[in-house]
Design a protein around this nucleic acid. Structure first.
Lengths: 343, 343
DNA sequence: GTTAGCACTCTATCCAGATGAGTGCTAACC
DNA sequence: GGTTAGCACTCATCTGGATAGAGTGCTAAC
């Protein structure tokens, strides 16, 4: 579709614009060593590229900047698959070396590392509860009225919530029920717990246990699967350092969106099932607040199942090559580490 | 120290400036109904107030703005202790009405309510682990090598971490140790757990249990009291709406500080032990990034012991009266609710 | 003690002109 | 035919000066 020279020029323009954030003129492209043409020739090609929709002009007599389509072409066909800087790989490895003993901590720290390395905003989706199953259930009385319900998952995560215990339910009854639950529901995926509770246990409980209704209500709350997906943000303020966001109002809409968990969740969920690294440029993100942003996501997994995902949010003018490299290394290492932990 | 008229004028200036964010001139004060003097008279008083350090002039021929000292005087002596708007009280009460069954959720939602109501940034310190004690300890095997250590506190919070179990330690041994721990360490404050482990249990364990050293190491990790204090931020981007922060760079230093947990922790810890609401104006905050901010904090408590604190961060030009009112209502209600839960 | 009047200060805003980067087009060159 | 030099043109940005307006401080009168 594009001639070799056009690809070369497009590449040069995107590269230049990524590092300078200023519209790129024909002369500055010509001066680079790698393109051996005069400004006039390049101008002609630029006019063609603009007509094809790969470039844009902020106004007559400004240089060109890549359009979304231009970025897309760059990412899909021109991206220098430069191997990630060894120093950066080292930093990531070092991070995995000092082992933290909680998945949550690891994920949180990973987000911080990422945002520090890239100077963009990193978004991390904690291990997805839906793909994990019950390992152990427990009810721990606090006082006459309350108890803590503790759910331990197959990946070692612990969820807990406080429930109210009606006074008419005795401790021994509770224990019976908890034992029943543990014998019948272990290894059931979390999101199926509640339906299984009704389909498999209801009958047996009704037979052996008084105050059936009240107990079911308690269990219902205890197993409530609003297991809020945990989102870890880091470096949100890095947005402020980008020249395209020197306008406070624009930044606000973006940062506001970042505080909105459900929206973020939707954005981070991979479109097609678990295929490596995804790049969403500008309006390819659903939200108009992100019209000037690009989101690069990767997933990490356990046993081939995507557990969570990692995202980097930056301006459309983003160091795609570098970020993709870093994200790749990190998601692979994270996957490897999880496999090693819970093998 | 100040004459009645000076107090009146200072009050008018601070009020005006709080709502307009523009330097206040003598004429606009005179025009207000409540001050019956001509601009000239007010100018004279303003000059005096400036000499005394309560006012500042951005430049000759601009109006006056309150200095930190001026705000301080306003907060200490002039603050209209207006009762909080009933509608706002209603909103807070409504929030407590739909009961959430996790302390964490409550705190998180409270932060959101606060920032939405005030349009400032709210900072909430989760229930302080140091004041709580152990209710139950448990080790739950995950696989041959790992177990989840679960610590339930007297307030129903659940902490957990994954620990490695050396292969030479048998399950029955683990159980013995856990039972011992539960019989000896329940009701011990969390931060004393580790020292008690050594002072009271070491001897007995050494007598009855093999692999003492390895076990101690496991327990040491399990009881590690890095129980990270949880900080909930909400409405951080509200900062961006304030005209004094239209400069991106200033906002960045503030938002960066907000991402720095340890610093925030220090800021929120009440200076004097648990006495109601504290107001820190401008440079009274230790950090220079907060030189143009005011931080208003309140604590919530259980059994008279401060459990955590709530803070509102805004520009020095802040609606002190309103925020203090809201904060008072919220902290009282939070305290009341906790008392009711864990009575 | 209070206030009207006035000169003075300083900022913000507007406008015109200069600057310069970059383009598009044409014609010449290889 | 592709490439390039030359040139006229466009448009955003920068500059400096003039102007308006808000607000003060001082003095003198009430």
């Amino acid at each position: 579709m594009l001639t070799e020279r056009q690809r070369m020029i497009l590449n040069a323009i995107v590269d230049d614009y990524i590092s300078s954030a200023e519209p790129v003129g024909s002369r500055s492209i010509s001066k680079r060593g790698d393109v051996g043409y005069s400004p006039a020739t390049i101008r002609n090609e630029m006019a063609d590229l603009e007509e094809l929709g790969f470039l844009e002009q902020p106004h007559t007599s400004a240089g060109r900047i890549p359009s979304h389509k231009g970025y897309r072409y760059y990412v899909d066909h021109l991206l220098p698959w430069s191997s990630t800087n060894p120093a950066e790989i080292g930093a990531i490895r070092a991070f995995f070396a000092d082992k933290l003993n909680q998945t949550e901590q690891v994920v949180q720290h990973a987000a911080m590392i990422l945002s520090n390395m890239t100077n963009y905003t990193s978004i991390l989706l904690g291990p997805e509860v839906f793909h994990t199953s019950l390992r152990h259930f427990q009810l721990l009385p606090l006082d006459g009225n309350h108890a803590v319900a503790i759910i331990v998952t197959s990946t070692g995560q612990v969820e807990n919530r406080t429930v109210q215990i009606p006074p008419e339910i005795s401790v021994s009854e509770m224990e019976k029920v908890v034992n029943l639950l543990n014998s019948k529901l272990v290894n059931v995926p979390l999101y199926k717990l509640k339906s299984r509770l009704y389909s498999e246990l209801a009958e047996e409980m009704q037979r052996h246990i008084s105050h059936y209704e009240e107990l079911m209500k308690v269990l219902d709350t205890a197993l409530e699967s609003d297991h809020e997906q945990r989102i870890y943000l880091s470096g949100a303020t890095n947005m402020l350092t980008q020249p395209e966001f020197k306008d406070v109002d624009k930044v606000k809409t973006i940062l506001d969106l970042l505080e909105e968990t459900p929206t973020l969740l939707k954005m981070l969920t991979p479109a097609s099932e678990g295929t490596g690294i995804q790049v969403r440029i500008g309006t390819e993100n659903k939200h108009e607040a992100f019209a000037n942003c690009s989101l690069i996501t990767a997933t990490y997994s356990l046993d081939g199942k995507a557990l969570g995902s990692i995202g980097i949010l930056g301006p459309t003018r983003m160091e795609y090559a570098r970020v993709i490299g870093i994200l790749g290394v990190l998601s692979r290492d994270l996957t490897a580490m999880l496999a090693h932990w819970y093998k």
